[in-house]
């Protein structure tokens, strides 16, 4: 029994780390534009699929991975520069629908450029499972966790300690004031999209040895990432991480202890409960304006 619980916890944390990375992408774009970008999961798919196909063409996996992340970053750049920035004066809802359109577009392109089959990548440190308290854990799980930790740490340092990171936050709070201190809003928001897409692409590549990828893997990832971001508190990077991990754990334990057929339902049920009791999310807070 204990080994089962450890097993669920391990797979929950691993999947949760992926959700957390997708949720971080949501957070970054939400913070700079107040838009929930539903193409976020498709950035992950694009990063993973590009890596798979470039690696299959004979390029070393690491180089293929870098190309995959670049492909995702380019998609992020194009999403903002070729679509969202032209519709800047639309409502936030309109922009969200635009990102859904972009997600469908990316899925369609992936279907044509790549194919419709499932693909995997070789695990970095082999597939010999590691035994922990009678549970067996894939070495790739540790790669996912380490990768996620590095990205989270780097992003926190970037937004808290660098002026450009603070600029992203400033734009989210008051675009007019940000412009008046000399911040070029278009440039900084573009940067937020690129970073966010690159994080998504990295998440997709890290997850592929465990979860496989295909042209349509992005949709569910977007939904889960969005749910994780909402669960933690939209706009808070720490909330995205906590929300992702909680979501992964709820899924793993719900699927393991009750029924794996309802795995996805448990996650969304958990969100309903949390948002009913704490609408601002687990760690989110309401900002009070003083007049």
């Amino acid at each position: 029994m204990l080994s089962d619980l450890v097993q669920y916890a391990a797979s929950g944390v691993t999947v949760g780390a992926i959700y957390a990375l997708i949720a971080l992408g949501f957070t970054l774009i939400y913070n700079s534009t107040h838009v929930a970008n539903f193409a976020q999961g498709d950035f992950a798919m694009l990063g993973a699929m590009t890596t798979v196909f470039v690696a299959a063409a004979g390029v070393p996996v690491v180089a293929a991975g870098i190309l995959g992340i670049l492909a995702a970053a380019c998609a992020g750049l194009l999403l903002y520069r070729a679509a969202i920035s032209f519709a800047k004066n639309s409502s936030v809802l309109g922009l969200i629908v635009l990102t859904i359109g972009a997600a469908i577009f990316l899925k369609g392109v992936a279907q044509i450029v790549f194919d419709k089959r499932f693909h995997s990548l070789p695990a970095w440190f082999g597939t010999e499972p590691i035994k922990v308290l009678d549970a067996t854990i894939q070495p790739q799980s540790f790669v996912v966790l380490a990768g996620a930790a590095v990205i989270v740490f780097a992003l926190v340092v970037f937004t808290k300690k660098t002026l450009i990171g603070k600029g992203i936050l400033a734009i989210s709070q008051n675009q007019l004031a940000a412009t008046l201190v000399g911040i070029n809003v278009t440039t900084i928001v573009t940067l937020a999209f690129v970073i966010s897409a690159a994080i998504g692409g990295t998440a997709g590549i890290l997850a592929t040895p465990i979860t496989l990828t295909s042209y349509d893997a992005g949709t569910l990832l977007s939904l889960k990432g969005f749910a994780a971001a909402m669960l933690g508190g939209m706009g808070s990077p720490m909330g995205a991480v906590i929300g992702g991990l909680v979501l992964g754990l709820v899924e793993a334990f719900g699927g393991g202890l009750i029924s794996s057929a309802y795995k996805d339902a448990f996650a969304f049920l958990a969100i309903l409960v949390v948002l009913a009791l704490r609408p601002q999310g687990l760690v989110g807070s309401f900002v009070r304006e003083r007049v």
Binding site: Q173, A177, L180, V287
Partner: peptide, 29 residues
């Protein structure tokens, strides 16, 4: 944004400080 670099600054109506950021961050920005 480029006009600021050229030496033009504005204190906007209603102050418009970055309310969710620290005072020091406001000044640094």
């Amino acid at each position: 944004s480029e006009r600021v670099k050229r030496g033009l600054a504005q204190v906007p109506e209603g102050r418009q400080v970055f309310g969710g950021m620290s005072i020091e961050d406001n000044l640094l920005l």
